[in-house]
Design a protein around this nucleic acid. Sequence first.
RNA 1: AGAUCCGUAGCUCAGCCUGGUUAGAGCACUACACUGAUAAUGUAGGGGUCAGCAGUUCAAAUCUGCUCGGGUCUACCA
Length: 1123
Amino acid sequence: MQAGYKEYKQLNLPSIGQEILNKWQENNAFRKSIELREGEKPFVFYEGPPSANGMPGIHHVISRTLKDLVCRYKTMQGFHVKRKGGWDTHGLPVELGVEKELGIVKDDIGKKISIEEYNRKCREAVMRYKDKWDDLTRKMGYWVDLNDPYITFETKYIETVWWLLKTLYEKDLLYEDVSIQPYSPAAGTGLSSHELNQPGTYKDVKDTSCVAMFHAIRDQESHFLFDAAQSEEVFFMAWTTTPWTLPSNLGLAVGPNIDYVLVKTFNPYTHQPVNVVLAMALIGKYFKKEDENLPFEKYQATGKTLPWKILANFKGSELEQFSYEQLLPFPANKMDNSHSFKVLMGDFVTTEDGTGIVHMAPAFGADDFQIGKKYKIGILTLVDKQGKFVEGLGEFSGRFVKNYMDDPEYVDVNVDICVKLKKENRAFKIEKYEHSYPHCWRTDKPILYYPLDAWFIRTTALKDRMVELNKTVNWKPKSTGEGRFGNWLENMVDWNLSRSRFWGTPLPIWRTEDGKEEICIGSVDELRALSHKADQVLGVSNEKLIGDEPDLHKPYVDEIILVSSEGKPMKRVSDLIDVWFDSGAMPYAQWHFPFENQLTFSKNYPADFIAEGVDQTRGWFYTLHAIGSLVKETVIESLQKAGLPTDQVDGRAFRTVVSNGLVLDKNGNKMSKRLGNVVDPFATIENYGADATRWYLITNVSPWESMKFDIEGIREVQRKFFGTLYNTYQFFALYANVDGFRFQEDYIPVEQRPEIDRWILSTLNSLIVKVQAYFDDYEPTIAGRMIEDFVDEQLSNWYVRLCRRRFWKGDYEKDKICAYQTLYECIEAISMLMAPISPFFSDWLFLNLNEVTGKSSMQSVHHVLFPNPNDSAIDLALEKRMRLAQGVSSMVLSLRKKVNIKVRQPLQKILIPVLNPAMKEQLKEVEGLIKSEVNVKEVQYLTETDGFIKKRIKPNFIALGKKLGSRMKAVSQALAGFSQKDISDFEKEGNYNLSIENEHLILQINEVEITSEDVPGWTVAAKNGLTVALDVQVTRALVNEGYARELVNRIQKIRKDNGYELTDRILVKVTEAATLKEAITDFNDYIRAEILADNIELVPEITNGTEIEVNDIPLKVFVTKKA
RNA sequence: AGAUCCGUAGCUCAGCCUGGUUAGAGCACUACACUGAUAAUGUAGGGGUCAGCAGUUCAAAUCUGCUCGGGUCUACCA
């Protein structure tokens, strides 16, 4: 234990952070905080694994602060809160980073670099910034166990993932299918729907769109068109924003119930007469009303007018199976299929855009594919997986359909296709069209829809369960769960698991070449047994691939050959799985469940709490939730087998989820490296400390709202909150050291302490109630703001200010000890209340106190239990009347200001009109505080009988509103016209008869509000129904007292300037000044007591004294320390 | 294009759910004061058509509808 409280020169938050960090390290504070709660009720938290292949940013600080504060709070509440860290290590971000670094593209893998080598690079790259992350974790005070994290690339982790996959496979929830999927040519892989739903994937782009003209073929069915046109030039018009799909066109879809027209007109580009078919509703998009039926013979190529005329009307259904000529025939898209190039019926066709006729390229659109299948029109995939046209497409062969390679010389092939169509009289309108289009979340390149074989999880089969379970999840904010997440679940599609990449968890499915037999492997043992069998049956050599510590990654797993029941070799399908499955599997895989740690798992499932950014709504939150819902039964079975309880398992992976918002820069722009407005979290913590940073991030806005990050805000928090609290501590330490207060005396019961002590303790306990409630409700922002208000407004600006004298005046006896005990308790409680948010400063504060008093046996504030409110200390009436005192004081100070009388000048009295005895009682209790605070000698209460008060009456709108309705206005007016006598009659009777618009009304006294407004003849201030008048008369005695206090003040300043100790006694000489002599004589005792002088000597002349002024009177004083 | 959240002082935010008559706080700015907590503090001042319009109501920042502006999300819209 230390002798005295540490005192400091100034507040230095970063160095406090450093100091406490060292202390934590020495004491293993984090580990101990968990060990201390061993055996207590667990509170389960899951850490969403970050990927360490990028630098951490300030937005990571906010979500981690949030996680940390909840875990610290729950620990302080007595829960056992384990916090296992984790790393997300697979997936596209890593692979693309490595490709960039090595200067290769996907196609080079396996050619220029072996897969083995490539994956080794990925494994290295993924932990590239691990040190930085660990450093940030430490410095920001995020307590998470980094010694034993789960790592998604480890064999054990993958084994659990495989177990999950096998579970799904066996339930027929994992299947393979061909479908049109979002595909990223730049990344070389398909994407899942939730990858497509990452923020920012949809971007507005300007594409060349084109209305193409498909030449109709005259036959038995279609001849009426040609007859109506009296021409062979009849075209179907179809609009596309992706002209590159036109060579793959195999059909045109129309809405069966949509009205179409045949229009005679000219091609605006070639000026040839043409007849076109389009939806009637869309005529206006291509033709002007005033051009209708203009004489065709007057049409001029250069003219602004385009004559047109409707020749025929018909429904879409009448066009079924009409044939047309292939638009862009090439060797590569020659079709020998009688079903191709026909007009088809499509219910999805609308007349909102385009022409009402939809061009169908089954390879590149899901709708197209479906319809195409139905009508057997075939499929043309004329684009390869790199995104370029295949051979056999003439001048377009080998060209990228979009600029996937970042080629500055790239010429848009879409434009060239349009130009070709234009020249061939096959384009009616070509224009730039702006629309939003999905882009790959990693490469930022446009995706395309592409036919792929892929493995899917049948999430839709469990949709209802997922929706139901979601309703029982506590979402913060609620709207994210109901809206964003709820809608997402409602519109769920099956989860596309396949990724054709290299660095990821391989899909553990092996099959024979003919595809007849297939097996899903669910554990390493199973793989080992089967490969051993294959060694024997097939004579292959799997042995070396699957030793004690097998690497389950590519290329090794691909080399393992298994054997089917018929003795045929089975090879692994080439797919890897979506990296999001890895992270969604963490509740199980982090414990290597069910292979090990069943007990630990059962105690840590599901999570009570998780928190990440909103961007994870459709990412991690979804995959956790989906997997939890899908494997519920299997988890229960496994636990039962292990003889463990299962009542915790209901399919939810988490019970409460907090999604925090984006961090924007101070102007509200998204932070991005490109804009250079990213905030470096290390520098911020370095300069301002983690405490101020965390406090700012939490208290500025609710976590789920996007926050505008402004460094000024941290500065303000530092000054306003931490500065004030530091000052309060410093004040306490200063005097407690003088008096040797170490909380050794008997505890003085609260009810025996002075009013003001009882008040601050009551306020403190009320604060504890509220802070607990808000923390419990995951509303740390409000909790923090309340602590702030208490520290600034109540503790520092009222309690300490009013009690200052109690700490430095008088002997060390009961009142003083009360003051010390009270202030100590407040500071100590604050250190605990704020500990979850600002862990360093709070611990520093706690330890500074506790190292002297030894009140707590704990080594850290994070080991103690969170304060519980002492209900008996709460006295709401007291809190209320103190607010009254604060109000009165504030008004008196403002009156003093108005008449320019400084507070140091004592005044005789204030007058307060009281409307009832209760009010007077309330005020009387706090009278002493008011008097000393505003430096007046007495408080005089004016009652009605004094005849001084002028009252004002107004309706109590809430009470009267319902009763009066529309007569409210009239009553309000009537009351405004009340005389003083009317009001006092009303008060006397308790009710009043009012006649409004020939109607009699009886108003009750509680239906109006009566306040005092004025004390005639006095300067008054009024606020919230309270009025105060100040007696501004300054008598001679008061003037002298003012002088005395002024003199005391000057001499105190000299004491301080001379650097005397608080307890030093002094000798004082003062030059004689006529004006002051009386004051010094009359208030001699007072002055000496204040300045700790035995005597004040009045002398004619001082040669080497200090010159001072007392109320503009110059004089000299000479102060020396008494030997 | 739809869904959703948001729009209150120069800035950051309360208040809105549950309507009630002078719309608050902090920061910033200006002036004055205070000074044994002093890189603090107090008092005063300027600064708001509560985005706009319409409706409901005796009464609207608050409830409803529409419009505008911003964010986020949804979308296989050809």
